[in-house]
Design a protein around this nucleic acid. Structure first.
Length: 625
DNA sequence: GAGCACTGC
């Protein structure tokens, strides 16, 4: 988009028309139109909360309802009042129902711009199919036999596969997830088969767990509107996406894919009754499905005098439970004090483009003299999903075992392994072939390198001076990484788990206590008796077939005590700035064991019930053998 | 023994 605009205006990109994305700022003094991502704009408002350098802000693709866009919508509402005379905001969206957003922005005018789609004939199947794979196959064959030429796009929840390059006289069948909107060349698509499902990641604030669920799609993607205000003279700001990928493609967007080039057909693998009565009108926005620790810290750091987090004006507010969860997490890692006010530490943390746990880890590491290592770990975790460690697809009977000569974290866990891997790569002078040999995605590793550099720069700026950010040439055999693990313990104080007495299950602290396992992919090792460390911190809780801790690090018991004490004394109503001082303490694991976990045994005291459950599981395992 | 949507500061 920015390229096109620069071209049409006959100017060089980076001058009158510029853009800024995470690692790249191509703007100059001359720039009057600047394209940027929502994340970059949010960062900018940290140093310039009123965004004085802009006179017009266009929030594009607002219907996607990304977490950042939702925060920006709230901030924009405030800015419009504050800068009534010299700021215009325009919000664009691809779907219907601008009323809601208009109401949010004090009944601002709505402009409808008709789309250019060809008509799409929609067919529902009469009954919910037993198997979606079968049903889509049947629909695909039907189309192939009965319909004139044109490619077929099939929306499923699994991994994307594009069959065959388009050869003449051939019909292409494209099986896709929800990324198929614009990233693929799907110009020839005339038919769409829509399973009606999508895979969605959601966060449960009461347990701190994420799950990846297959859920029914909605009628529309998020809110929709075409609206905004009249544009006056001055500077412009747009949003640009790094990749031309749409995120959530819901029922009507899916159907729309069939009508891009000529009239099309959409086969829905669900009855129309299901569409009308059961599908939600709009997708649940991300802000209601994510952990909000980072966003809440960010908002607190803006120091907006007139804003109270629990009552922040969101277009769709997250639950108060979710906001309280964020406050608790921030308190445990010292980002806010017991009254809920941001601390100096928290202010510094907000400057780092990381989740609060990792920001806290970096600051602690800087004190402990292991910043360089922590920078590497934080960067590696930021790219974690795109590193794709090992996992050979050949389904050998072989045990998992990370391929060949990659280090194993020396028994301390996954964070340490990530550190060691990066250090090895550093020793090869960032050799690309080395990545390939070791099954590491090159792009992922390059991304890590970029993130690490960015984090180092920010840390140097924050701490004012040159810090130890250099990567050590080689790691010492037998190192216990004590300082780094301690720093991780401070950062992940809100993600702490204790091993059960008799087996290798762990229970979490801070949240409603859960019995969880170390993820099988972890490199954390057990002692000679087969027992894992007594305490670990984890990067993430993810529920798949069971609740798992993903990316764990062994920590020492003496580091845990102060955290437990802090958890014990936490007063949530005070954290939320409430006047209601009911002294209602947060339920911590030591006080209140869950009723629904499989460790529960009514009317027996906590410790007994734990041992009992442990014994039961132990016996069960023996019997199974 | 698991996992197999997506994005991004």
């Amino acid at each position: 988009m920015h390229r096109r605009v620069a071209q049409e205006l006959g100017v060089r990109l980076g001058e009158e028309v510029g853009y800024a994305i995470r690692f790249e700022d191509r703007t100059s003094e001359k720039t009057i139109i600047k394209y940027l991502t929502d994340g970059v704009l949010l960062r900018e408002s940290l140093s310039d909360p009123e965004l004085r350098q802009y006179s017009v802000i266009i929030l594009d693709e607002a219907h996607e309802r990304s977490l950042n866009t939702d925060i920006l919508l709230g901030l924009m509402k405030r800015l419009i009042k504050l800068r009534q005379s010299n700021l215009k905001v325009l919000i664009t969206s691809a779907t219907l129902d601008g009323e809601k957003v208009s109401r949010f922005f004090s009944n601002c005018p709505i402009l409808n711009v008709p789309g250019k789609l060809y008509p799409v004939e929609i067919q529902h199947i009469p009954e919910t199919p037993k198997s979606y794979v079968e049903a889509s196959l049947k629909a695909a064959i039907d189309i192939h036999v009965r319909e004139p030429e044109g490619d077929v796009l099939i929306f499923m929840t699994g991994q994307i596969r594009v069959f065959s390059p388009p050869s003449p006289n051939c019909r292409r069948f494209i099986v896709a997830t929800n990324i198929a909107e614009t990233s693929l060349t799907v110009d020839g698509v005339v038919y769409v088969i829509d399973s009606g499902f999508v895979k969605q990641r959601q966060y449960n604030p009461s347990t701190g767990m994420y799950s990846l669920d297959v859920v029914q799609i909605s009628k529309w993607e998020g809110i929709g509107l075409m609206g905004g205000l009249r544009v006056g003279k001055g500077h412009f700001i747009f949003f640009v996406r790094k990749n031309k990928v749409k995120r959530r493609v819901q029922a009507n967007q899916r159907a729309g894919r069939a009508g891009r080039t000529r009239p099309g057909k959409c086969y829905r693998l669900y009855p129309s009754m299901v569409y009308h009565d059961i599908f939600l009108d709009a997708t649940v926005p991300e802000i209601q499905r994510s952990s909000l620790a980072g966003s809440v810290l960010y908002l607190k750091s803006l120091d907006l005098p007139d804003i109270d987090i629990l009552n922040f004006d969101f277009l769709d507010p997250p639950s108060s439970e979710s906001l309280e969860d964020a406050l608790k997490q921030l308190y445990i890692i010292d980002a806010i004090d017991e009254d809920g006010s941001i601390t100096n530490l928290g202010r510094t943390m907000a400057e780092l483009p990381l989740e609060p746990s990792l920001s806290r880890t970096l600051l602690e590491a800087n004190e402990c003299g292991c910043l360089s290592q922590a920078l590497t770990v934080a960067a590696m975790l930021s790219a974690e999903t795109s590193l794709l460690l090992g996992q050979s697809k050949s389904n050998d009977k072989k045990r998992k075992q990370v391929p060949s000569n990659l280090p194993n974290g020396s028994g301390w866990g996954d964070h340490i392994q990530l550190l060691q891997i990066y250090e090895l790569w550093h020793q090869t002078d960032y050799n690309i072939d080395w990545c390939k040999e070791n099954n590491l995605k090159v792009r992922g590793m390059m991304f890590v390198k970029d993130v690490r550099k960015q984090l180092s720069q920010i840390m140097q700026k924050i701490a004012k001076g040159s810090l130890d950010v250099k990567i050590s040439k080689r790691w010492k055999e037998g190192s216990d990484y004590r300082a780094l693990r301690k720093a991780l313990c401070s950062g992940y104080a809100n993600q702490l788990a204790e091993r059960m007495i008799r087996h290798n299950g762990f229970r979490t602290f801070g949240f409603k206590s859960q019995l969880v396992q170390v993820h099988p992919s972890s490199v954390l090792t057990a002692d000679e008796d087969g027992m894992l460390p007594n305490y670990v911190v984890y990067h993430e809780l993810i529920v798949t077939t069971r609740p798992y801790m993903r990316n764990v690090c062994a920590i020492e018991m003496q580091w845990v005590r102060p955290i437990l004490a802090k958890l014990d004394n936490m007063n949530v109503s005070k954290l939320s700035g409430g006047t209601n001082q009911s002294n209602e303490k947060i339920q911590v694991a030591t006080v209140d064991l869950p009723k629904d976990a499989d460790i529960a045994k009514p009317s027996i005291d906590d410790t007994d019930s734990r041992i009992l459950a442990a014994r039961e599981r132990f016996l069960a395992r023996k019997i199974n053998k």
